[in-house]
Write a protein that binds this DNA or RNA. Structure first.
Lengths: 351, 351
DNA sequence: ATGAAAGCGCTAACAC
DNA sequence: GTGTTAGCGCTTTCAT
């Protein structure tokens, strides 16, 4: 199938060592020899095998990337950031997706180890107590987590708890008191849990009682009865909803419309992620924005430093926590009804 | 760093051949020997090297994927489709992005050849006269294009010309006559050119004069003067805009709002791509939707068949052209002003 | 049932 | 300036 260094050597009448030198240290060769060898390379469509090369050396210049899915723009963006940075250092990416499934995470990491990646960047379901990652630590394979938010491992993310708190504060500053948090599956994501903690922080700081989060099914066409129940009574329904991610926020906004509620007039909605398209909505999605591309890039920089690559010129240590921002779009509005300021969300907890 | 088959052999007091058999044909081994070897494997954190293995064999079970960028949801979705299908066949993906740059395309393909990928799936800037692809043909490396729309090579896409025609027809059916097409850079994409052809087809079929397309800068904050000029006169401005992709459509919609025009009341907008989030916009984006994930999956199926993998059970040949659909959202409306039906877009061409 | 050894494509140490 | 050769980790005959 492929021609090898041997074929080239035979074709040009030199030794394989000479061909190897033609590839890796051409200046050592006689100009004529070099030309001859290069001709043969052309003629035979020879392309040196990274396999053979890497077999001897240590590094493969391959890094593994493990993400749940690319259907979520958050990870697509992040991967784009990793790719840009890694390519610049002449590293190749090997991609595996896991669909948030831990069996697939295991397979992914095994595969990448077999491929002898020099290191890996991963977003896992459970970052804290994760035997797979412990094993990587044991065998000394460098890795950096992206988007996972834990102090126990090298992980690049925003401070999800603070970010959520800041988001909810933005709602509080606009006079909202009855704020409900909606989430996807908490099981899937340590991040969602931290975001709920942030919600609690903000509510408690404001002297309000945090409500239990409502877990929503992503794929539903309409809002679940549990949420609709919360919305039925105009005098007591939440004036703002804090969604644990943007996709959820968009689903909710649509559902609210179906239910005859206008956003943000009747109810404000705040998302989380800051997916790029959000800004372009006709009523721009308000969101706690995370710098996803930068998270990817930064994860690479950490990995690069662990791989012993020359650090970039910019001084200072590479950050683990990246700044978030609360992107105020058109889906949140100041509360104008003064009655709502005092009425509380649950009867048990009058403000 | 890593332990090798030799280490395991030494540790368990057998030969490397026995270890190899423990991995690849355990049934050939004495149960005790097997157990012993497996213990050593555990103890040493041994993971067989794909490098060593692949050096002997032919196939690497690696496929290269070359896309312009993952920032565009179209390619992210497509990649997701490829990944799902390839993983199912136990193939690994090696990813390279090109930013629509032909030098980077060259580097990407070279790299992937060096990595001895068994085949590749690519989206390139110029599919027709492309020396890189010709070379792949020469050396017999199987590849399938995705999204590129050409009859000269194996390429999975929608029929861009027809799809655009159908989109414009949807506008015509709603009474629109003054329809203008907006595009990003034609240089970047054979697809954009085909979409313009489709626009022409539809207009000519309706007895209307196709207008020259307006090329727009993606990154502009506001609409370019060239477009604003077209919009100034309510009596003669286009009643509908056909954008060659969704991103452009969203930019345009925002620009129109800034310019004081309401969508779809004053002017209808139709996009192209059908990016998933588009449906979720508060005024859902109308778009000629392409099945991007399916395009990725289908590209894989073609590649798989070229690689000699057992075809899937579903009968019939694998398609190259996938069905598009015109997704009618809220950004296009029937034309109500009867005057507009007769007034033409340019004075030179009275209907 | 297990071992010995050749060979996959390449690099690097050494010899000439 | 160029050739010879050992060896990287593994699979696969061929012996035993």
């Amino acid at each position: 199938m492929h021609s090898t260094i041997k074929d080239v050597a035979a074709h040009s009448g030199v030794s394989i060592a000479t061909v190897s030198r033609a590839l890796n240290a051409p200046q050592l060769l006689n100009a004529e020899t070099l030309a001859k060898v290069r001709e043969s390379i052309q003629a035979l469509d020879f392309m040196p095998s990274a396999r053979g090369r890497q077999l001897r050396g240590v590094a493969t210049r391959l890094v593994g990337v493990v993400v749940p899915t690319l259907a979520n723009p958050v990870f697509a963006e992040s991967l784009q950031g990793i790719d840009e940075a890694a390519s610049a250092s002449d590293y190749r990416l090997m991609l595996m997706t896991t669909a948030y499934d831990s069996a697939r995470e295991r397979r992914a990491i095994e595969t990448l180890r077999e491929q002898r990646v020099d290191g890996l960047i991963a977003t896992v379901a459970d970052a804290e107590s994760n035997p797979l990652l412990d094993e990587l630590d044991r065998i000394g394979l460098p890795y950096v987590l992206a988007h996972n938010d834990t102090a126990y491992r090298a992980a690049v993310s925003v401070d999800n708890r603070r970010a959520a708190r800041d988001g909810v504060c933005a709602l509080l500053r606009r006079g909202h008191r009855r704020i409900l948090m909606l989430a996807g599956s908490f099981a899937e994501s340590d991040r969602a849990r931290l975001r709920y903690r942030g919600y609690e922080d903000a509510m408690l700081d404001a002297g309000l009682m945090p409500q239990a989060p409502l877990e929503l099914d992503f794929n539903a066409e309409d809002l679940p009865p549990s949420l609709l129940a919360h919305l039925s009574d105009p005098a007591h329904r939440p004036t703002a909803l804090f969604c644990s991610n943007d996709r959820l926020a968009m689903i909710v906004i649509r559902g609210l419309r179906h239910a005859g509620l206008s956003v943000p007039h009747d109810i404000s909605v705040l998302g989380f992620d800051g997916i790029p398209l959000g800004e372009w909505l006709s009523t721009a999605l308000s969101s706690v924005a995370t710098p996803n591309r930068e998270i990817g890039r930064c994860a690479w920089r950490h990995l690069a430093s662990r791989l012993g690559l020359p650090g970039d010129t910019s001084a200072g240590p590479i950050p683990f926590k990246l700044p978030h921002s609360v992107r105020t779009g058109a889906t949140i509005a100041p509360l104008i009804d003064p009655a709502a300021r005092t009425a509380s969300l649950v009867s048990e907890n009058p403000a």
